[in-house]
Design a protein around this nucleic acid. Structure first.
Lengths: 266, 266
DNA sequence: AACGGAAAATTGTGATCACAATTTTGAGAA
DNA sequence: TTCTCAAAATTGTGATCACAATTTTCCGTT
């Protein structure tokens, strides 16, 4: 009939998970499905920029790397491709999506629209404990900046922002934002590795200050400024990259500089 | 005897697909993966409100309903749950998410933030052919309004909006919006069935007029007004619904041990 | 040496089986 | 009739096999 599973547990799990899941929530929750663990591992890897844009993803290779079977990976990849964090080509091959100026502009546009709203909605719900965690993330960012750990730096940056947003009643909007962060995470890391880690903490301190004083307008401005800082930095990097990588990849940069690429701000 | 394996013809495919896929792209693309077809079928069913909120989803039942195997359904459900169009509970059961006022507010907030931007970005790229399609969708909406076909009405409304947004270079933002529409689709239909189909075409005509005149500001206002109209209508319905709900919603499940069948959704 | 193309390896997709967890059903007892 | 609880059916998850489509390898010929 069929080979059927060996009575003795053929699942190896645990052990390392170092390949991709290293550095994140190693607390193995036995109640969690394996596909959830695979999803979280890949998600974190994307956000902290562990996976470079354009990199191909192999189901079986990643299954072995994560120490799980192929089925959880298949489910995780399906979920991530639905969020456009992974791209499935006509070849049926899976890869980290490449970044284009169009994509970058839209992702930043989305951040600019959603994040100030989430921050403002959260302000009233940030208590002392939450503020302490926010400060801890900012400290972690500074520490990682000095030690040069880009992945930790990005993880702390993510934690800082979402510690704020998640404090408020904005779970739906926050989910949308997570999708956005997963999409530009790989690219962000690539840029940081090139131009070096640039500290944006000043805007973070401005945000912390605004939270302390319960100043909604100032908080909104701080978040917007933080995003715009990154936008400016990363946007310039795209430009230099586009020039040296492929000459005629995207001549649309002229249009970007010449015409306002849309931040009409409702 | 639980083995339901029919001896002959394991795969039925093609034929009807009437269960869920009825009314949508029946053009069977052999080059498309089955999971893609299952995903599109479920997506469309959500957007036109064919699936009511809270409804449980069964893998095997849906597989038979769609005439495909369970694997494509598994992949499709994984993708849709990643977009929060489906909810997986701690029981591992899958269902259409319930609507709350918080969720509703956030979804409408997201629409209000993203859709005017997408419309403005698209205005310059709307040629005569596209405008003709937009008008056709609006006509379809009017016709469905008079004939009382709520599903067709909602499908036309969706097509109208996304025909505009997709004309512009906003594929990333449009994807985010699709996730939003899938989330409130089931609820929207439920409300429409209750208060009756209300025509919002006046704002659509305003949008068409703005497109003709290439008036960016007017187009933005038209889209915003259209969303606000729906928000107002649906928001009121939420309140009336909250008062009368629990009545006969779950007669089967509440038959034993009182109610509280528990779908808490962390 | 350079190119062409068949063989081998690898890919994602889908089907099928096994299994634990849960829900539903069906008696039997109060 | 109502409650209790075990049997049966159903659920999603994961493993494994099969397969078509690619990609890679590598030996043959030019």
């Amino acid at each position: 009939m069929n080979k059927k599973t060996d009575p003795s547990s053929p699942r190896v799990i645990s052990t390392h998970l170092t390949g991709l899941a290293g550095g994140m929530e190693d607390r193995a929750q036995p109640e969690q499905t394996m596909q959830e663990r695979a999803y979280q591992a890949l998600r974190h890897a994307l956000i902290v920029g562990k996976l470079p844009p354009g990199k191909g993803i192999s189901l079986r290779a990643m299954a072995e790397d994560l120490g799980v079977g192929v089925m959880p990976i298949r489910a995780a990849i399906a979920r991530l491709s639905a969020e456009d964090a992974l791209a499935v080509h006509d070849n049926r091959r899976v890869s980290i999506p490449d970044m284009t100026t169009d994509r970058f502009d839209q992702l930043m546009q989305a951040r600019l629209l959603l994040e100030p709203i989430c921050a403002m909605r959260a302000l009233g719900a940030i208590d002392a404990a939450t503020l302490a965690r926010i400060r801890a993330h900012d400290d972690q960012m500074n520490a990682s900046y000095h030690s040069g750990d880009a992945e930790l730096y990005m993880a702390a940056n993510y934690a800082f922002h979402f510690e704020i947003y998640r404090a408020g009643p904005s779970d739906v909007l926050t989910r949308l934002l997570e999708s956005v962060w997963m999409q530009f995470g790989p690219f962000m890391r690539k840029v940081y590795g090139r131009v070096g880690t640039v500290r944006l903490t000043d805007k973070h301190e401005m945000a912390i200050d605004a939270i302390e004083r319960r100043d909604v307008t100032r908080l909104k401005l701080a978040i917007e400024a933080d995003i715009l800082d990154g936008m400016d930095l990363l946007g310039k990097s795209i430009f230099t990259e586009a020039r040296e990588t492929r000459a005629g990849e995207r001549p649309a940069m002229a249009g970007r500089s010449g015409r306002r690429s849309g931040t009409p701000q409702a």
